[in-house]
Design a protein around this nucleic acid. Structure first.
Lengths: 148, 148
DNA sequence: TTACTTTATTTGTATCTACAAATATTGTTT
DNA sequence: AAACAATATTTGTAGATACAAATAAAGTAA
């Protein structure tokens, strides 16, 4: 279904306006797919993002700020995301002894197992397999260019 | 800046995984740009979306359901978005006399003037002008394909 | 040392979102 | 007509987001 059909709009002022609207619509669609994907696992996409970042440092720690700057959604409140993950025993938090302003965040062993379990499900990026690899590459290049 | 640089991730399992992450990151970035764009006008991107849809019917009405199915963000709560727009006198709401379950939503003259004023600002789709028109076209085609 | 600035994180709060349930009207059966 | 189902919208509410302000530790300068 084309974007025009999706939102019942026949005319667009340009291919550029259409691309803007298509990007907004598609990202809302994707966000909905993501939520559905993670719901059975009891986490949100942002919580997953935090865990992936901590996995990258495993078994070492990461600070709140370091997680912040690697998040896909920069407006996430790391403190409260981590609170949720600690409740589930997927992550730990302790004061950095060298700099008591900072917190050391770590993914736990059960957090690692949890991620492993998720990765056995069909991954979200399978949607992109409707593109050829060259197209995916161009797609990435276009998005990078877009953001300036 | 490439997506890898943005989120400080060197490796991706494939061009497809990278495309997924790039799309999520870019859409968050765009959402931030949008919010900044609309803030001086005192409305949210979703409120703007409702007004654009009502403009398309002007001077006729649209029902809540009709607005719903044309929204870019399908999870928006039209009732509460319209409440806000009525407060600002940009939109009116009255019971449909032929079917009292339905509401007739209309953009007001001052709502039309308001939109006119916004359209005189630099439009958000200027970001896409870093693409050629053929690229924008392909971009649209790829997004449509993505959603299946 | 005291005062001031910077850095890192947390908290407060108004608003928004997701989604289920409630309400109200219309349409359909029996 | 009474009962039930379908449709259209609104409301309730737990949780999430945006963003400003608060807190607290570390660094710097007089």
């Amino acid at each position: 279904m084309t974007i025009g059909e999706e939102i019942k709009q026949k005319k667009f002022s340009s291919e550029y306006e259409k691309a803007l609207i298509n990007l907004i619509f598609t990202s809302n669609w994707l966000s909905c797919m993501q939520q559905r994907f993670f719901k059975p696992f009891g986490i949100t996409p942002q919580q997953y993002n935090v865990m992936r970042i901590l996995k990258g440092q495993f078994p070492g720690p990461a600070s709140v700020g370091m997680v912040q700057e690697r998040m896909l959604d920069r407006s996430s409140n790391i403190t409260r995301l981590v609170d949720k993950l600690i409740e589930k025993k997927l992550v730990t938090r302790c004061e950095n002894p060298n700099n008591r302003r900072m917190q050391e965040l770590r993914i736990t062993d059960s957090g690692m197992a949890f991620l492993e379990n998720i990765s056995n499900s069909a991954p979200l990026h399978q949607y992109f397999e409707t593109l050829t690899e060259a197209e995916a590459s161009l797609f990435n290049e276009m998005l990078d260019r877009l953001r300036g």
